[in-house]
Amino acid sequence: MHPAPSIILFSTLSGLGFGLLVFLGVGAIQPVGPAAAAFHGIGLGLAVAGLVSSTFHLGRPERAWRSFTQWRTSWLSREAWAAVGALLAASLFALTAVLGAPVPLLGLLSAALCLLTVLCTAMIYASIRAVPRWHHWTTPATFLLWCLGGGAILAAQTWLAAMILLAAGVLQVATWRRGDDAFAALGQTVGTATGLGARVEPLERPHTGESYLTHEMVFRVGRRHADRLRLIALLLAVVAPTFLLLLVPSHAAGLVALLCFAAGILAQRWLFFAEAEHTVGLYYGAPGGRTT
C-alpha cells in the first residue's frame, strides 16, 4: 500500500497525544497549575494535529462531517465518533485539572475514549481482508502498545515506559514475522484472481502508464530495504529511548528519547503501509509475500 505521509503523520502524532492523555486520565501523573496546562495542552495538541493531518488525504475534506453517519458498519466512522468523544472528555478533564479540581471519573472516561480511538484507527486496517498483513489482531495490539509506550515517555514514566517499549518491540518483531507469511497463507494467486488455473503470467497491463490502483495499492518495497528499516525502527523506538530513560535521568535525555521514539514510529508506520500487500497486486503480477 502507498505510504501516504498524511496518514503516517496522523497515526504517529495522534498516537503520541492520545497516549499522554491516557496517562493523564488515569492519574499516573497529576500535574497542577501551569504544568497541568502544559501537559494536557501537549496531549491535546498532538492528538488534534494528527487528526487534522488525516484530513489531508481526503479528496473532499469539506464533507468530513458526513463520516459520522455510518458508525454501525464502518470503523472509520466509529473512529470519528471516538475521536470527538475523546477530545471532548480530555478537554473537560484538562479544564478541571488546570482549575485545580480534577474529576477522576472524567479522567478515566477520557483515557478510555483515547484508547478506543486508537483501537478504531487500527481496526480500519485490521478489518480489510484484501490486505492479509493487516487483517489480524496484532494490528490493534501493536497500535495500542506503541500508543501507550509514547504516552509513557511523554508522561516521564521511566520504568513503565521501558517495559512497555520492550513489550511493543517484541510484539512488533512477531508481527513482522507473521506478516511476511500472511499473503501466502491467504492462498490467493493470479490463478485464483483470474480463475485461469495454475500457470498464469501477466502478458500486458491494461494501461501503459500508472493508475490510481498501481499508485495506491501495488506499492512494493524490497526485502533488504525493509529489513534495514525494521532495524532502524527498533533501534529508534525501543533501544534508544529505553537506554536514555533508564541511564540518563534528565529532561534533555527525555526529550531526545521522545524524538528518537517518534522517528522510530514514523519508520514503523511507513513500513506498515509500504510492506502491506493488497490482492489487487495479483492482477499486475506483483508476487505475494516479500520481494527480494
Binding site: M1, L58, R60, A64, R66, V280
Partner: peptide
C-alpha cells in the same frame, strides 16, 4: 456524499474502484 477517503478502494479485493484525482 463521498469524502474521497479511499477506504472502499482498499477494501475491494479486485481493484474495481478508482478515486478521480
Amino acid at each position: 456524499a463521498c469524502i474521497g477517503c479511499g477506504l472502499c478502494a482498499w477494501a475491494c479485493p479486485y481493484g474495481a474502484r478508482e478515486r478521480d484525482p
